[in-house]
Structures are given as C-alpha cells and as structure tokens.
Design a protein around this nucleic acid. Structure first.
Lengths: 208, 208
DNA sequence: GAGGCAATGCCTCATTTGGGGTAGTTGGGA
DNA sequence: TCCCAACTACCCCAAATGAGGCATTGCCTC
C-alpha cells in the first residue's frame, strides 16, 4: 500500500465531485483521500493532510482554486496540484501556473486521461490539455521581430543592465555622444521616451 | 490521401534517421516526405516544400536545429516543428521554444509516442516529454516573495509604466517628495540604484 | 549617382533623477 | 508601554537624462 496514490478533490459541482472521487477510488492504486466543495475548507484542512495530488477546480464559489493553490503550495511543497477548468483562456491559465500548479486539464477530459494525468505528475511530468500546452509554448514565442539595428540592440541590453551613458560608452569603445544618439534612436523606434519603458519593452518583447 | 500527414526529418545520425523515416512511412496515414542529415540542406530545400510536421534534431553538425527552426518557421508558418534531443537542459529547451518549436521530445521516446506527438501537433497540441513539460511550467513559478510594502509595490508598478515622480505623485494623491522617498526605499530593498534595474527586477521577479 | 540607413561624433538646455539628510504620524507587535 | 515599519513630507546638490539640433563616413539599394 506504499505505492498507493492519495488524491484530494476540490470541486463545487456535486455530481462531478462524486463522480471523480468514485472513479479514483475504484481504480486500483488510487485513493481519494478527501473531497471539498469549496476552497476555504480545502485550505483550512488540507494543510494538515498531505495528499500526493490535488485536483483543483478553478471556478469555485468564494475564493478561487488559483488563490487556494497559492496558499497551499507553500505549505505542501511536495503535493502536485492539477487544475481543472472549463475555460482555457489565457489569463487564468498563466495565473494558475504562476500560483504553483503542476498540471492543467480541461474538465471535459475523459476520466482515463485524468487518471493518466495523475500518474504523470507523480513521475515528474506536467500534464496539460492540448490547447493549454499550445498556449503555454506560444507564450514563449517572440511577438514581433525587433526593429533595432544590431548596435542598438546591444546598447539596449546595456540599458537593461542598468548601465549609464558613460559605462556603455566605455564598454563599446565609442563616445558618450554616440551612445546618446543610439539611445535616442532606440526610443524613437520603440515609441518610448524613457529608460524604464525601453527596459520593459526589451524584456517583454525580445532581447533580455 | 488528403488526410495524409507529410513529415520531414532532420537528423545527422544515419541509423536514427532511417529508422524514423521507416517507421513513419510504414504507418498508415503518415508519409516521410524528406530526410536531411544537416540543417543547411534542410533550410535550403525545405522552404520550397511544405511539410505538415518536421522532426528536427537539435544537435547537428554545422548550424543547430534551433537556428534552422528560427530560419524556417517564418517562411513555413503552418508547419509544426518538433524538436528531438538527447538532453533536456534548460537553456536549449527555452531557446528552441522561443525559436518557434511546437513540440519538444527526448530522443529516447518510443516510436509510438513519437507518432502520437506528430498527431498531437496536428490537432493543435504541443507534445512535450515529461521532464520538458515540467521545466516549462516551472519557469513560470515566481522565485521569491517580494520584499516591498504594498505602497512600494504600487509605485514600482508605475515606474514600470515609465511614469515619473510628478505623474506618480498625482495618481497616488501624495507629494512628489513622498514618491521619491518610496523609490529610494524600493532601491534599497531591491539592491538596485536606478529605474532601469528596478524595472527589470520588477518584471523578472514579481509584479507586472 | 542619388537616396537611405546605420554608426559615429558633437553641442545646448531644461528636467529628472539619485544620494544625502531630517522628521511627523500611525498602527501593530514585543 | 515602547519600538519599528510604513507612509508621509521636505531640503540640498551633483549627476544623469531626454529633447532638440547638426555632421561625417560607409554601405546598400534603386
């Protein structure tokens, strides 16, 4: 019984909740340790227990599943949280991931795939529904090519490091005047008018 | 034959290459359109063709598979690239993803899973080996909690927007002096000494 | 050969910024 | 009760910055 996988469920829809717990309990090697119908109860009680995996609904009455994970993950670092959701819109996906979710499945996922997902997190994976995985990878892809010349890009990199005119000039073996001119051109091309904005664009869009 | 999936392979190891192409060709519904033993040939010839999926080795003689994807993806936006690699170290994974890869599989993946991966990208997914998926999600998780007070965090957010003392002061209904004091404290706590560095830390670590 | 762009260098000027202080109030924790 | 952190406000000053110009040298394209 040492290789039994203990699962907890947080889900407000009674039908789904009971159906999930039944499926898990009836599968050899899996045990549904606890079920909660809201995040508050889960946060309060789950920190005492130590489930291997928590299936966490996102759309809950009261505090959301994402907030619950934020609270629980720090006290249960070895527990893997798999989010369940009906929607796969960008912001919730990324919020959940940032909160510490290890997997992210859509609710229409067939039970056998969900069980696979539970296995998957147990062996160090991160199961994601198709559309989620695609979104996550897409978020890494650079939006648009950078309009800056090579030299300007180099200087922008230095700006991100917090270097000032003088330092950049020294490092690039050009005069401070030149650096200033480049920076002015960078601002124009990026449609910004300060270091702060330029650094932000640099990090959020391309170089870093 | 309309639902035939055309695959191209770029792989320098002859044995693996031929084994892969054989597996693909012998599977109904899949056709191995072309094979290349290096990225240069692939880049030169593949832009004419239009494979559905390209299996791209990363470790290639000459230019790497990652650079090849960077070049090919812009001209073949509808083609999905699945990277194949023996290593799963962080930097190459993220470089490949940024270059435009849609999937990322380890080379020791069994052939049937690889075929599944090809299917997966075709239906809008992003197949990743276990360890890769985990790394990708882990990269989203916030490093450490922010040491700033609520007010300071608020001001840092404004700094990221490129606002200056005056503007921030107006928005928060406090004097410019106060804003300056807060910013000085922010710099101390973050161990930085300029807006640029503060903005960078803000984006890379927490808020934004 | 003309025109354009990238890279380089220079000037001036008003503003912003960062570093150094000091200090009052408030609310909560020891 | 006392102290501290957070928030507020103010002072001075040197340095950095952004905005506005102008000019030269290559290189590339039309």
């Amino acid at each position: 019984m040492n290789n039994m996988i203990y699962v907890a469920i947080v889900e407000d829809d009674t039908e789904i909740r009971e159906s999930l717990s039944m499926i898990i309990d009836s599968t050899p090697g899996y045990s549904c340790k606890q079920v909660f119908s809201n995040a508050e109860d889960a946060v309060a009680q789950l920190s005492q227990e130590d489930p291997d995996v928590v299936l966490m609904d996102i759309e809950l009455p009261g505090i959301s599943g994402i907030a619950a994970v934020s609270k629980l993950k720090p006290v249960l670092p070895d527990t893997d949280f798999i989010m369940l959701t009906v929607r796969d819109d960008d912001s919730t996906v990324f919020d959940a991931i940032c909160a510490g979710a290890t997997g992210y499945m859509l609710k229409n996922t067939p039970p056998n795939i969900l069980l696979q997902a539970i296995d998957e997190v147990q062996v160090g994976g991160s199961p994601m529904s198709r559309s989620i995985a695609r979104k996550v990878l897409a978020s890494f892809q650079k939006p648009e090519p950078n309009p800056l010349s090579e030299r300007e890009t180099e200087i922008l990199r230095h700006l991100c490091e917090g270097h000032n005119y003088r330092v950049i000039a020294d490092k690039l073996f050009v005069s401070g005047h030149t650096v200033r001119t480049h920076i002015k051109n960078i601002y124009q091309k990026l449609h910004v008018s300060s270091r702060a904005e330029a650094v932000r664009r640099a990090i959020e869009d391309r170089i870093v």
